[in-house]
Design a protein around this nucleic acid. Structure first.
Lengths: 224, 224
DNA sequence: GTGCGTTGCCAAGGCAGCGTCAAGATCCGG
DNA sequence: CCGGATCTTGACGCTGCCTTGGCAACGCAC
C-alpha cells in the first residue's frame, strides 16, 4: 500500500488527515516543519507528499525545491491563501497540485489518488505467478517454463476472468456472462470444454489440476 | 513546442484560451463536442487536453474514459460546478487536474505547465532494436542491416504504436483508433493490409514473422 | 448397489478471422 | 495537368477456432 507524507503545523489538521488516510489503507507519516519534511522524505521514500505552505521554519517553495532536487514524488500543496500568484509559484516550483483550504476531504483524497496514479506509470506488475505458469495480464500472455503458451481468444478471456479473482469461486452464470455474454448463461458445456483445454495447456497433469479447480455444483476457482 | 487540445462549447472561452496559449508558444487545437474531441485527440496526439465537463453531446466522464482507453495524455478538467462529487468522479475517471470556473488565466497556465511537465518524464532511449532491424522513434526511421527502410506515413504510424508497447498484445480497436481514428474501429482489413507490408519490408521471412506477430482473434504484438 | 445430476473428454462440421493479391481512388509534387 | 506513390476497397482461399452432440467417469443421496 502507498505511503503518504503529511506536512502541516496544525496538529488538528494532521490528525484529521491521518485518520482519513489510514481509513483508506494508506500508511501515513507526518512532519510539522519543512526541515522535518525533507528529513522524513529522504528516509521514508513516500509515494506522495501533502504539503502545507504555511510552515513556521521554511518557505513553501523552498520545501518543494528541496524535494525536487532529488525526487519526482508527487507533491500536493495545501494553502489557506487563495492568491493566484502563490499558486502559480508553487506549481512552477514543481508541485503537482494545489488545494485551497478549507477543502473537502473527498476531493483531497481524489486528487491524491490521481497524483499517486500518475506517479506510478508502471501500474505495478499485473503479473500472476503459480509454480507451473505465469500470467501477464497487461501484456496478455501466459508463459510456462520459459515458453509462450498459445491461447485462443476465448481461452484467454476465460483464464483472465478467473485470474482476476484468485482464490474465489466463480459460479457458472458469472463466468459464462463475462466471457460469452448474458445470453449464454445456461451453456455450461462451454465451460467444460474450455476448462479442459486450459488444463491441457497449463497444468502439468491435466487430470489432477492444481490451479484450475472445480468446485462441484458451484463453479470454478483459480488458485495461484 | 507543445500542442494543447481545448474542448469547450463556449466560443468565447475557446477564443480566450486560444489567444493566451498561442501567446505562450503553444499550438492550439479546439473542439466543441466530445465526439470531436476524441477524433482530434486521435489524429493530433496533443501533449495536453483542456476539457470542459459541460459538453452538449457527451457526459464528461465518458470523454475522459474514451481518451484513457488508449492514451495517457494529461487531462485538465474545467467545470462551472463546484460540486465536490463531480470533482471526485472526474479525477477518478482519469483526469489529472480540476479547475473551477471562473478561473484565473495565470493559474490555469501554471497547472497546464505542471501537467505537461509531468506528462513527459521520458527522455528515455527512443531506439528499439531487434535482431533484424532497428527503430528510431525520435528520428522516425527504421534501418535493416545498415540500410534505411522506406516506410509510408501509415506504415510508420502503425509500427510506432506497436513498438511503443513491446511485448504487449494490442487489440484491433486500439490500433485502429490510434492510427486511423475512432471512426475506423471496425476496419480490421486495414490492419491486415498494413501488417502485411510491414512484414514484407522488415521481416526476413514475411511468411514466418519473428517480431510482428499476430495473436489470432485478439490483436497484434511486437516482439523485439 | 442403484439412479441421477454433474463433470470431463472427444471429434466433426461450419464459419469467422487472417493473409494475400490486385484493381480503383486519392493525394501530391513537378 | 500528368505521373507516381499511397491509401482504400473488394474478393478469395485457407487455417484454425467455436460450436455442438454424444458418451464415459465420477460423486452423492437413498
Amino acid at each position: 500500500m502507498s505511503t503518504v507524507l503529511v506536512v502541516d503545523d496544525d496538529p488538528a489538521l494532521v490528525r484529521a488527515l491521518t485518520i482519513n488516510l489510514r481509513a483508506r489503507g494508506y500508511q501515513v507519516h507526518a512532519a510539522a516543519t519543512g526541515a522535518g519534511a525533507l528529513q522524513l522524505a529522504a528516509t521514508d521514500a513516500p509515494d506522495a507528499v501533502v504539503l502545507d505552505l504555511g510552515l513556521p521554519d521554511m518557505d513553501g517553495s523552498d520545501v518543494i525545491a528541496g524535494l525536487r532536487g532529488w525526487t519526482d514524488v508527487p507533491i500536493l500543496v495545501l494553502s489557506a491563501r487563495e492568491h493566484s500568484r502563490q499558486k502559480v509559484a508553487a506549481l512552477d516550483a514543481g508541485a503537482d497540485d494545489y488545494v485551497v483550504k478549507p477543502f473537502g476531504m473527498e476531493e483531497l483524497l481524489a486528487r491524491l489518488r490521481a497524483a499517486i496514479r500518475r506517479g506510478t506509470p508502471t501500474p505495478a506488475e499485473p503479473r500472476i505467478t503459480t509454480e507451473d505458469f505465469t500470467i501477464d495480464l497487461s501484456a496478455g500472455r501466459v508463459t510456462a517454463d520459459g515458453r509462450d503458451v498459445k491461447l485462443t481468444p476465448t481461452e484467454w478471456h476465460l483464464l483472465e476472468v478467473l485470474a482476476r479473482h484468485p482464490g474465489k469461486v466463480l459460479d457458472h452464470g458469472r463466468l459464462l456472462t463475462e466471457v460469452w455474454g448474458p445470453a449464454y448463461r445456461e451453456q455450461t458445456n462451454y465451460l467444460r470444454v474450455y476448462m479442459a483445454t486450459l488444463r491441457r495447456k497449463l497444468e502439468p497433469d491435466a487430470a489432477h489440476p492444481r490451479h484450475l479447480l472445480t468446485e462441484a455444483g458451484r463453479g470454478y476457482r483459480f488458485e495461484p
